[in-house]
Design a protein around this nucleic acid. Sequence first.
DNA 1: ACAAGGTACTTGGCAATACAAAGTACCTTG
DNA 2: CAAGGTACTTTGTATTGCCAAGTACCTTGT
Lengths: 119, 119
Amino acid sequence: MNDSQLLKGILEGCVLGIISQGETYGYEIISELEQYGFRDIGEGTLYPILTRLDKNGYIRCRKDKSPLGPIRKYYSITNEGMNRLMEFSSDYRKMKQCTDMILEKAIYKADSDNNERRE
Amino acid sequence: MNDSQLLKGILEGCVLGIISQGETYGYEIISELEQYGFRDIGEGTLYPILTRLDKNGYIRCRKDKSPLGPIRKYYSITNEGMNRLMEFSSDYRKMKQCTDMILEKAIYKADSDNNERRE
DNA sequence: ACAAGGTACTTGGCAATACAAAGTACCTTG
DNA sequence: CAAGGTACTTTGTATTGCCAAGTACCTTGT
C-alpha cells in the first residue's frame, strides 16, 4: 500500500475498532495495525488520531505507568465512540460497494480486451 | 456517506476506472459516479481530479463540440493510466483486507457484548 | 428578442488528514 | 554510563475533497 491517500479517514475508523476490543495504548496500537497488515504507520500519524478521537469524546484516556518504559496513556472507547464506530462501518461499507462495482467492471473489461488482443 | 475523508484517494481511482471503460467527459462522469452510488460529487471535486490525471499522463484529452451545450473535453485512458489503475486496484484491495478484518472483529465483539447484556 | 434552465468547464480558498522529522524522556541491560 | 527499546509530543508539509462563485454555450417558451 504505497498510496497514503487511501488511508485518509480509514485509519481513524480502524484505530477506533482496535480500541473497541479493549483498553490499549498508542505504541501497542501501532503494532496491532501492523499485525493487521497496515505497514509503516508512524507515531506522527497515530498520536494525532488519538488526540482527535479523545477531543471528540469517542475515547477516554487514563495515564498509568508502564512495567517497562515511560508512562503510558491507556485509551478505552466510550458510548459515543461505539456509535461513531458503527457509523464509520456503515459509511465504509457503502463506499466499498460503489468502488468495488466500478473496479470489477473496469478490471473485467481490461482482461477481456487483453484476451482479444492475444487471439 | 457523510464522511468525505473516506473518499480521499478513492475517487481518483474510481474516475480512472470509469474512463477506462471508454471515452467520456466530466459532466457525464459525475452522473456515472452517481449511478454507482456516489452522491453529491460536485464539479469542484471532479474537474481538479481530471486535470491531475491528465497532468500525470494517466488520461488524454480531446476537445469537441457537444450536440446540446458548450464544448466538451473528452477523456480517454492511456497505457500509463491502465498501469495506475491496476496499481490502485491492488492497493485498494490490500487496504480493504486490513480494514475488513479489524471491523469484523470489532462489530462481532460489539454484538456479543450486546447479547450478554440482554441475557 | 429575451428570460429561464440545463449543459459544461474553471477558479480560489478552505479544512481535514497522513506523514516525515526531530525532540523529550523513561527504563533496562551490559 | 552508554546503548537501545519504549512511549508520547510537536512542527511543518503535501494531498485532496469540497464549497462557492463565475463564465459561457445551447434550447425552449413567451
